[in-house]
Nucleic acid binder design. Structure first.
Lengths: 164, 164, 164, 164
DNA sequence: TTTT
DNA sequence: TTTT
């Protein structure tokens, strides 16, 4: 029963390799620093460039995938939500941090990115979701404005099962 | 291993009450017609208004919630993906349809909307996702730019469990 | 020549009335505090609720509209980008802040929100965009709440002008 | 005074080279066919893959940029809105089409994509956006007669001018 | 700290 | 600080 939408969509490049730690229960928690640069013209007509560095955190399976496939320089699509935290530093001072808690990730560009591991294939990841739930299979070819069409997709329920 | 992002975000009002049918396996499939109106100025400076009517479909539990809580006139936030289908009409002609397959929904405005059922409380719904997975509980107060802070939130793993 | 996408979409309620100040050049800068609440189940099955308070800032005309139409309690859709700032406090300490710089806003729910000014009509606002740019006008027929399709829209260029 | 949000975010690859035509008034109208592939597991645990082919249209300056920099195979981020159209075919039959009218585009992967033109640098494009709206006049960079997008940063006012 |  |  959420009240509100808190959604972030980022496309950017990693400033460093991902850093992964594990919780006591063994869950991966991977962090990346993601740059997004935007450009605008100021009132004098000069080009102004500004880069934001996002702290993005991936939990669980997603964290493992990020750790394995992303590297410094990798370009990535991330979807998640903003989380603001307050904590007390070692000096007793209150500090604030802002993180993007990712729930979807997609590698871009077809190459892993920077240096090593570049041979990784492009892939994406998100929490599994089951579609449909009905009976037999249907073959509903995708609409393709192009000659060659895509193969059928399975709605997981047969034609007779479709109520519309 | 998806290749691509196909994401739709809509905020609009229902043109009619939702229509629900059930698959043979008992899964709800609820459809709504959702209006979004945009306004632009043409080059003559005249205001141009245009309404798009989106066919949105909700499966399973989400379909049941939509059927129960939304009515003609209800304002709603919908997130989903575009699905293009091709089928053959009774006249043997090929036809195309475009649907938004919803995976998240949130009622807006606090009132159900139109006529009946208006007493429904505001609520939202999306496929359950489990967060974290670690051990004990932590109390990580939300960052509040203001004096009074938010109560703790449970990351499902204790402080000692947090690797950062 | 931007490199990256930095996009935030929020739906939430104002915790207080908007606060507006003006730059020396007379531009409005309006700030709101926007709450989004999410709910998840922890691994024990307990419902966990957490509210994020977003600092959202609106510049210029958008800032004026927000100041005029939104109130404490108002529900609103906001689109913008994340901006991280670092500054030095009066105590000489470095501090960080995170803001959502809004570029689109839409009032939700049909009522202004909280207390006064509730009689405001629902409206939205965003930087004006010109559509089309071509020749004559087309007719923009009424909308049918039904079948997916749309009647004509005014593309600001005549049918003969449409290259497809 | 829009009522509603109609937003589409796509990341995909072009199935063919872009096709550009010009209106009588000389505005570019460029179309691409963009593939997004998603994967899900059906209830039998089998992997199901489905590709949607989106018809995306870019007007004005954005259309020119797409025509120049994108090629078959290029990976691209697109933001826009859904537009449903109804028209009458040569056979007198009513037909429907669905287009994504883009207002923002960003090339991904650093390489143009498929075959020729691969040497193009990565870049992005969106209609210029002016921030603010206050006092004197700012320099308003040329506007493309087209869609439009959002605001952004570029505070265009000095530090002393910032009221927060 | 990335990327161009 | 909102909202439910």
């Amino acid at each position: 029963m959420a009240r509100g939408i808190n959604k972030v969509i980022l496309v950017g490049n990693l400033g460093n390799d991902p850093e992964t730690k594990y919780t006591q229960s063994g869950m991966a928690v991977t962090r990346i620093s993601l740059a997004t640069t935007s450009v605008r013209k100021d009132r004098e007509g000069n080009t102004q460039e500004r880069t934001e560095w996002h702290r993005v955190v991936f939990f669980g399976k997603l964290g493992e995938i990020v750790a394995e496939y992303l590297r410094k320089g990798s370009q990535v699509y991330v979807e998640g939500e903003i989380r603001y935290d307050k904590y007390t530093g070692q000096d007793g001072q209150e500090r604030y941090s802002t993180d993007i808690v990712a729930n979807e990730m997609q590698m871009l560009g077809g190459r892993g990115g920077g240096e090593g591991g570049g041979e990784r294939p492009q892939r994406s990841a998100a929490p599994r979701r089951e579609y449909g739930g009905g009976g037999q299979q249907r073959n509903a070819p995708a609409q393709s404005p192009q000659p060659a069409a895509e193969g059928g997709f399975n709605d997981s329920f047969g034609d007779d099962d479709i109520p519309f």
